[in-house]
Amino acid sequence: MPAEVRIPTILRPYTGGDKIVTGEGVDLGRLIADLDSRYPGIAERLVDEQGLRRFVNVYLNDEDVRFLGGLDTVVADGDSVTILPAVAGG
């Protein structure tokens, strides 16, 4: 299921500078694995053993996937995935 994925500035070195790429997978976890197969290293920046990294926000269409199913969130053909690092600090 190809979905459009919007890549934040800090991760664009992985995608050769591309701001929008295409990813495939029935759910977010598989879509990230697909991205990693073409943009090695990107998955490591998004997930850890616990799932999505705490300070990375991923949105399916307009919804934060934390309020959907996290990495199990179903991705449909034509969906739009947006990745944004949290703006946070102490």
């Binding site: 949105y59 307009d62 934060d64 947006t82 944004l84 703006v87 946070a88 600090g89 102490g90």
Partner: peptide, 11 residues
Amino acid sequence: TFYEFDSADLL
């Protein structure tokens, strides 16, 4: 001691 933009606001 901490700040974080709300995730919906950030999008």
